[in-house]
């Protein structure tokens, strides 16, 4: 049954291997809840209800136990996001140096709103709390890459770059 669920989640074989390996790191299976959720989110992009059930079965827990963890941490997503994840910092330094305008520039470029998937499916923009690079505000994190001093012009440049990569892929 768990195999059927994992196939509908389309976990990569490498992720499945990592999951089985990570469970062995802990004296009790329950402790592997967080690492498993991270691995699934990295692979699939979000944590679905079936993923929660799958993790619960895997770790011999009840789904509610995993559900509690997923909802406790805001960085676990329960809905899919776009191909790229753009996080614009909203905290004090960035806000003072134009973080709001940067965010709006991204929204405008991809014709979308924060928290939503853009119509072309390319990006999800989020306005997040401090990214810990206040000295180079405003900062933007695109997937795992930090971009510093992102004013409106640089935001446009980054958007164009993402768009051209997308068109090349097509």
């Amino acid at each position: 049954m768990s195999a059927a669920i994992s196939s509908s989640m389309n976990l990569k074989p490498a992720t499945l291997l990592r999951i089985d390996e990570v469970i062995t790191h802990y004296p009790v299976k329950r402790s592997a809840t967080l690492p498993l959720l991270h691995l699934i989110q990295e692979d699939v992009g979000y944590i679905s209800e079936e993923a929660i059930t799958w993790v619960a079965t895997k770790l011999e827990l009840q789904p509610i136990n995993v559900y509690e963890v997923v909802t406790f941490y805001p960085m676990f997503r329960q809905k899919p996001i776009g191909r790229r994840h753009i996080k614009v910092c909203r905290t004090l330094s960035c806000a003072l140096l134009g973080g709001y305008k940067t965010c709006e520039a991204f929204e405008h470029a991809f014709n979308t709103h924060r928290g939503e998937i853009s119509p072309d499916g390319e990006v999800t923009i989020e306005f997040v709390e401090c990214l810990a690079s206040c000295g180079t505000a405003p900062v933007v994190l695109i997937d795992d890459d930090l971009h510093e001093n992102v004013d409106v012009a640089k935001a446009k440049k980054l958007s164009d770059q993402i768009k051209s990569e997308a068109s090349q892929r097509r």
Partner: peptide
């Protein structure tokens, strides 16, 4: 019968069952 749990956190914490249970 471990069906109940708290989801979300802080003042938003809510007692609930897993969807479908």
């Amino acid at each position: 019968d471990d069906v109940l749990g708290f989801i979300d956190r802080g003042s938003y914490s809510t007692l609930t069952c897993f969807p479908g249970k």
